[in-house]
């Protein structure tokens, strides 16, 4: 039995996309973390302000 690999070469571009996906994934992840941290910080500040007000 022969595996039909003759057209596998057409998919070689996938190997070139992988590093781009890794870098973009890393950027998106770090951006989301940064936003979450900022939102968390803002919430803490708001709580502290409310407590201070009481």
């Amino acid at each position: 039995m022969m595996i039909p690999l003759a057209h596998l070469g057409h998919w070689s571009w996938v190997f070139y996309v992988i590093p781009v996906v890794i870098v973009v994934g890393g950027i998106v992840r770090s951006t989301l973390e940064e936003r979450r941290r900022k939102r968390g910080g803002a919430r803490k500040n708001a709580k502290a302000t409310r407590r201070g007000g009481r």
Binding site: M1, M2, I3, L5, A6, H7, L8, G9, H10, S12
Partner: peptide
């Protein structure tokens, strides 16, 4: 054992 074609020979689209 499955005979695998050499990719460059098959379509010459992989690499040098």
């Amino acid at each position: 054992m499955i005979p695998l074609p050499s990719l460059p020979e098959a379509h010459a689209l992989v690499a040098r």
